[in-house]
Design a protein around this nucleic acid. Structure first.
Length: 556
RNA sequence: UGGGGUGUCGCCAAGCGGCAAGGCAGCAGGUUUUGAUCCUGCCAUUCGCAGGUUCGAAUCCUGCCACCCCAGCCA
């Protein structure tokens, strides 16, 4: 066997492995339980990869279950986007999509079970009163005056709640546990509340809705989930999760395990904050390519594999950290380097005239689509007298270490000839607007004799190229940890989007389809945006190529 | 002494009593018609701190310190 670096098993993988080897004879069942109240982001990708990945690895199942217990915040549109994101990442949920609301009837019966056993009661304290009775972090709470109602009375009252005989907020069902518990989640937690709201799945069937705590664990049990994985903030809920499972006639005993959520620097991974960016118009929508949402990253050009590799590499632990954006960028570059066909696109064009190139002569050059993968074939680019190169690839007076074109210097046109610049044309303001050059006809496919040409730059034929819009993205926030700021929107990077309308792309790109990904040589990876039309191609820069010239330049 | 957690390289992360994996970033070279990719080398005598146990400690014990989560009829 090879000694290749195998990803070490993280703690959850170890637990599952151990369970499979010992107590569990059945299969591993996990679930990804999003609340449909927003779009999924990179943090959810971690959870998706963990849950679906584990099930896949152990030959088990992973369910997609919407945790839809709060109709006030949830919408069908979010349900649809979430399904699309999970599928795009390449995972398949077992069976049909599930909803916690599928279990509302059972949950209601479970509630009656607790009531009949004296483990739950209807409480008519107002929200404010309930807060006072709950006590504080350091002081115990005190019992609700409604705590000792009889099971019979509670049953009647709860049935009235269901029948709509209480106004919103007028009554709740509470578990009867311990108002002095040091863990606040055990101070008679609320199980049901009255909410006269239409629900995206159940319509107007219910006017009482179970809380997360009363829903999650029981749903897990009903589905036979063996390992219920969630983030650290739910750790304090585990005793309640277990209490409910112990006191209810559930069909299975799922176990909850917590892991640290993913934090990425220079962005936010909080549905609430992302929603605010959308609602306040700081971005163009949930799928804005600057958003760390799965749909935004998809539109930006990220690949499912790059996200999955990223999630595998960051690991799964219980210590909360902040992953550097460069890890994510590395993951996309790695995948795209191997899979993206190459093409040339001049982002900031400046005209080049090859004075010794015959007026109407047009040559077709065949270039490989990929430098290492011949199976990707060739593409044709047109060579002609008038070209465009990037303004950044020319200097009248070159700085030290310069390898590109300069006045009275020469450079290789990628896949074509070596050209020499002997003059520049300037406008009234003194800006260089055109380069007068000559080409060396003996340099196609071979190096000139007697001299070395260090640089290679990309180019396109002036006539045979298409105008394209190119969108460059920079980090959304200037602050490494925007969430730590008083107002996170204050550190929004106002230059996170740069739109280049006059870019010139090689002709082969005319037929690019939405979603297609390319490496624009020497620039970066780009994906065709969904806003492209037949007469206007729009490219999103997924990520730039690594650029060691920036470093050299920086050192002066 | 409210409860629950976490502290290993700039970042992520292995390790679980036998002498600090790996990845990202960085640095230095090599190859290169992408200043890309690829390749090579360098990058924690030290594991939050202080004691202790032990032949031996990041790993065990004790005490500190720092940070995170919890007082929604949100999830």
């Amino acid at each position: 066997m090879s000694q290749e670096a195998v990803t070490p098993a993280h703690f959850i993988r170890k637990i599952v492995t151990q369970d499979v080897e010992s107590k569990h004879t059945g299969k591993v069942i996990t679930r990804f339980p999003p609340e449909p109240n927003g779009f999924l982001h990179i943090g959810h990708a971690k959870s998706i990869c963990l849950n679906f990945g584990l099930a896949e690895e152990f030959g088990g199942d992973c369910h997609l279950r919407f945790d839809d217990t709060n109709p006030a915040k949830e919408e069908q549109a979010y349900v649809e986007s979430i399904k699309a994101d999970v599928e795009w990442l390449g995972f398949k949920w077992a069976g049909s999509v599930r909803y916690a609301s599928d279990y509302f009837d059972t949950l209601y019966d479970y509630a009656l079970h607790l009531i009949d056993n004296g483990n739950a009661y209807v409480c008519e304290l107002s929200a404010d009163e309930a807060r006072e009775y709950r006590g504080t972090l350091k002081e115990p709470g005190k019992n609700s005056p409604y705590r000792d109602r009889s099971p019979e009375e509670n049953r009647q009252l709860f049935e009235k709640m269901r029948a709509g005989e209480f106004e919103d907020g007028a009554a709740v069902l509470r578990a009867k546990i311990d108002m002095a518990a040091p863990n606040i989640n055990l101070r008679d937690p609320i199980l049901y509340r009255v909410r006269r709201l239409n629900h995206h799945q159940t319509g107007d069937t219910w006017c009482i809705y179970p809380t997360y705590d009363f829903t999650h664990g029981q749903s897990d049990a009903i589905e036979g989930v063996t390992h219920s994985l969630c983030t650290l903030e739910f750790e304090d809920h585990r005793p309640l999760y277990e209490w409910l499972i112990e006191h209810l006639p559930v069909p299975a005993q799922p176990r909850q395990y917590e892991f640290a959520r993913l934090n990425l620097n220079y962005t936010v991974t909080s549905k609430r904050k992302l929603k605010q960016l959308v609602d306040d118009g700081h971005v163009e929508g949930w799928d804005d390519p600057r958003m760390p949402t799965i749909s935004g990253m998809r539109r930006r050009g990220y690949t499912p594999l790059s996200l999955r590799n990223f999630c595998e590499r960051i690991g799964v632990t219980r210590s909360e950290g902040v992953v550097d954006m460069s890890m994510l960028e590395h993951a996309v570059r790695e995948d795209l380097d191997a899979t993206a066909p190459r093409a040339m696109c001049v982002l900031n064009p400046i005209r080049v005239v090859l004075e010794n190139y015959p007026e109407n002569d047009v040559q077709t050059l065949s270039l490989p689509r990929h430098p290492k993968d011949e199976s990707m074939g060739q593409r044709e680019v047109t060579m002609s007298r008038e070209l465009y190169i990037d303004r950044n690839d020319f200097e009248v007076e070159p700085p030290p270490k310069w390898k590109r074109l300069f006045l009275n210097g020469e450079v290789r046109l990628r896949g074509s000839y070596v050209i020499h610049c002997h003059d520049v044309v300037k406008d009234e303001a003194g800006n260089v607007v055109e380069l007068r050059c000559t080409y060396d006809e003996n340099t196609l496919g071979k190096n000139p004799e007697g001299r070395k040409v260090k640089g290679v730059i990309h180019w396109v034929s002036a006539a045979d190229s298409v105008e394209a819009e190119v969108r460059l993205y920079d980090r959304l926030f200037q602050e490494e940890n925007p969430a730590a700021q008083e107002d996170f929107t204050a550190s929004l990077n106002l230059e996170s989007l740069t739109v280049l309308r006059g870019a010139r792309a090689e002709a082969s790109l005319r037929r690019a389809n939405v979603g297609d990904r390319f490496q624009f040589e020497r620039e970066g990876y780009f994906a065709v945006d969904s806003s492209s039309s037949d007469d206007r191609v729009v490219f999103n820069r997924t990520v730039s190529l690594r650029d060691s010239w920036q470093k050299v330049k920086g050192k002066g």
